[in-house]
Amino acid sequence: MTTKRLIFTLLYDSGSFMLSRNFRLQRVGNLKWLEENYGFGKVGSAIDELIVLDVSRQPRNIERFCEDLKLLTLDCFAPIAAGGGVRSVDHARLLLRSGADKVVVNTAIYDQPELVENLGKEFGAQCLVASIDCEHNNGMFVATKKNSFELTNHTLADSIKICARLPIGEIYLNSIARDGTGNGLHLEILDHLPANLTTPLILMGGVGNSKHIVEGLRDSRVDAVATANLLNFMGDGLSRARRNAINEGIDLANFD
């Protein structure tokens, strides 16, 4: 078994970090608040990776996002994936020159597959994370796009097939029904994945405490668990969650 990962997701909107519940957003704090309550700028953080998404519902200000990304990542020596509204190679390059190591794509998978192809040629598949946001309807998981405002015609299994044809390094899977609820991960969604998935899988949506993290990481189909729960892990919450998972026998890198 390979070592698993604990990932924290930050949802960004015009200088603020947001709490999402079923994709409805609530403002929580700015960079200063984040530094005071999480301190990602400190060497030796409790997470394996950070994912930072510009989830603004307004037209996005990419330059501002990148400036804030630079500030956020200044002394953060953990891998960072960034995305939200990536519509061109230049946009992705800007993120990669502002502290991001990987680029997250979502809508482009369905609407601009040729862009994903080009991103792969330019930066390599290991640089591209496919975010798949699923709605749960009558036992089916259907992929959505555009901040989940639009349904695609694709089931989860179909969208995984689309990703398999594209240069995608990781699948970042979220269940909208569980998003931000803190009720635990939607483990049922894993049964809708193809059995022979060879792309690393990050599961998110519903993590409210360290028990949920353990439940997700314990599943052999899951390579990483992510949470965007900005309020439940303040202070040393992420460190404690990590230690707890290690004590429960989960294979995570030990940063102590």
Binding site: T2, T199, D223, A224
Partner: peptide
């Protein structure tokens, strides 16, 4: 045993 590619994460 099949391995996932890319190889991502902390390794010894």
């Amino acid at each position: 045993q099949q391995v996932k590619i890319p190889n991502i994460g902390f390794r010894e």
